[in-house]
Structures are given as C-alpha cells and as structure tokens.
Computed example of a mutant assay.
Amino acid sequence: MAKTKGAKQKIQAPKGTKRKAQKPSSPPPRKQKAQKTEQDTEETKPAPRPIEDAVALLTSDELARIRYGDGYPFNLWDRKIGDWLVKSNDEIGRELRNEISIRRWVDYFGVENVKDVKHLSDDQKKKIISSLDGWCVQIPWNSLLNRFPFCVKKDFTKYLLCVLIEKDIVTKMYDNPFWYLDGKKGPDDEEGDETFGQRLKYLLDRFVEADPGDASLLRSDISRLANGTLPCQVRSGVWGKYHAERRTRQVEQWAADFIASEPACWLLRQNNTFSEQDRHEILTDIYRWSAEKWAHISSLRGNYNFYQLPDLGKTFNKESGLVKRANDHVPPFGDESVEGMRILLVVCGGIRVQWENPDQGDEFYVCAKASVLAQEKTMYH
C-alpha cells in the first residue's frame, strides 16, 4: 500500500503545470459556431409587417370577433347597441378635465395678483368680465372681487385667466366635435370649407331633437371613421392620421392666437424666467391633449352636453349633483358655507351624457361636475 501511494505521488504533475496545459489556446469550435448561427438569425430576421397590411388581410368575420368578441354577428343592429369602445362616465370626466393642467400654466405665466393689473382701465376690466359671459356673473370688477371667497381672493386674476382658457377649449372643440373635418367637395378641392364642422353640428343638433339615440349613433360613427384606431374600430387608419395632423396644426395656431388676444394678454405676466416659446409650447400641449382626447371620446355612444353657468342656476346646490367647489376653494365650514349662495365663477365646466333608456326614457348622467367658486356665508348674512 505504501509503495502504491508513493508511485502515485511520483507521477502526479504540479498544479501550475496541469492548469496551464488545460487552458485552451482558442475558443472551442462549438461556441464559435453557435455565435455565428445567432448572428445569421438576427441578420435574416424579417422586418415587422405594418399593422395596416395585417388588418387588410382580415375578413369581415375576423374583424367582427376583434371588435365585438365571439357570439356577436356583424350586422347593423349589433353595431348600434354594441359597446365596442367602453369607458365609464367617471373615466370620461377625468380625461376631459383641464382644470389642473390649465392652473399650472397660469401659475407660471399669469399675473401674480390683483396689484399687477392696477394699470388696467375700467373699460378693460369690463371687457374681461363680459368676455366670460356664461361662465362668470356679469357684475362690475370691484363687486366681483369683493364677493370672491376670502381663501382664494389673492388669485382672483389667475382664476379669470383659467376660465378664459377653459372657455376657449370648450367653445372651439367640445361644442364643435367636427371642427377638424376639412369639408372638401372633392379631390380637386384644395381649400375646403372651414364652416363645414359647424354646419354638420347644427344638423346633428336637429337630429337629436328628432331621435337622440340614432343621432348619437350617427355622431359616434362619424367620429370613429374619422379617428378610429386599428384594428378594433376601422380597417384603414389613413384618415385617422390625416385628421390628427390637421388637429396638430390647428391647436398650435389656437394657442398662439389666445396668447396674443385681448383680454387674455392683459392677464399674462410680461417678465418671467420662461421664454415665449416655452409659454406657447406648453399651452399648445394643453390644447392638443384636449383635442385628441375629445376626438376619441366622441366616438362613444351618447349625446354629450358641456354645461356652464346658465344650466346651474344662480345659487350653489350640492343636491343637484351638477356642481362642486373648485379644487382650491376650501371654505371655513365646508359646503355649508356656500350652500344656497350665489355662484360667481365656473372654473371648469360640467359634462353630461344623454342615454336612451326604453323603460325610463331619456336620461342624463353626469361625467364630471362643474367646478365653481361661490360666495361664502359670513356673520353678516
């Protein structure tokens, strides 16, 4: 046994020599081949096919299963009652609200307080109030300021500027859902008709009086065909891209027009750390966001109503379900301090949707309550 163990020790090579002999001088051929095969696979991998080409190969039955799910036949009746694009009322309200984004822009670019507009004449102040007709009570500047809630009185001018932007968006987009349609008479018509969207909206309003349900179907299908996304809503997205480009160009112009317009320019800060380009680009983003969200939400069923001061009545009524206090308005005793008091300003308009219920008739559902500032109760009332 001792002899055998000694023989083994004699023929054993040193550890350093053994480790050096096992180290390969080049990578194994098998690894080289695997790397080469992987590279070849990446080089020969086909490019992804555009979604338009894939959708063009789908049959009507396949598109129906994508849009409606299994078990829904592809016919006109199911298209009228099918919820192929579903959003809750609360979700619609959140997506169409601009109160927070507008307020941030005004905080950066609006005048700081009332002292900064002392140079404005009485005629200029009167023009600011009159330009907010339907959103603000039509009383003189000083009377409105004195009745303003104490906790937000320092931001009086900022609230006025916020409402000017909100009113501009609602008037140009929400109340006119077809504003981006070019109204061309044919392929040779390069100019189109800028009034086409307004005339189509007027026709739709008359149809709503005749039959709200079918009028809603007409409006939502026009919007879907003009802006639909692949493959759930339309077979081709050409027109959707075309109208998105038209909206992008228009909202840039609208933002520039608002900054230069009267009375908005009177409530803008002249000297700040941001450039005029930043001011225009950020406001353009707010307009663009509103335009794109409304273009797709208007594809939903139902007739949408954007309501302001005339629809709320003169006083704050929480039980109506149409109104709430503005985000920054925190009265000392909660809603009891403003209940039954006069509404002074609609900061953000309300949104309702009309549905046709065969059992109960037409119904309105509130997607977002109107944010308002109301006069507070004091010890003198």
Rank of each mutant, 00 (worst) to 15 (best):
Q124Y: 03
Q124M: 06
Q124F: 02
R103P: 05
I92E: 13
L85Q: 07
L76M: 09
D123Q: 13
G69D: 02
P73N: 09
R94E: 10
D83M: 03
W77T: 14
R103V: 01
L85N: 07
K80D: 14
R104N: 08
K87Q: 06
D90H: 02
L85H: 08
W105I: 04
Y68P: 03
D107N: 12
Q124G: 02
S101F: 08
F109S: 03
N98F: 00
N98M: 05
R94N: 07
N75G: 08
R94G: 02
V117D: 14
G110E: 11
Y68D: 11
R104C: 01
G82S: 13
S88M: 00
K118I: 05
V114F: 03
N75V: 12
K118H: 08
L96G: 13
N98W: 00
G93E: 08
D122F: 03
I102D: 01
I100P: 04
D90E: 11
D83N: 05
N89Y: 05
E91Y: 01
S88P: 00
L96N: 13
D70K: 10
I66T: 04
K80Y: 12
I102E: 03
K115S: 11
R97F: 00
R104Y: 06
I92Q: 13
R103M: 11
D78T: 10
V117L: 08
N89L: 00
R67N: 03
G93L: 07
G69F: 07
E95N: 09
R79T: 15
W77I: 13
R104A: 08
K80Q: 14
V117A: 10
W77A: 13
I102G: 01
K118A: 07
L120E: 13
V117Y: 13
N75D: 15
D122Q: 08
K87S: 05
L76S: 10
K125A: 05
K80I: 14
R104S: 07
D78R: 09
R97N: 11
D83W: 01
K115A: 10
N113V: 01
K118C: 03
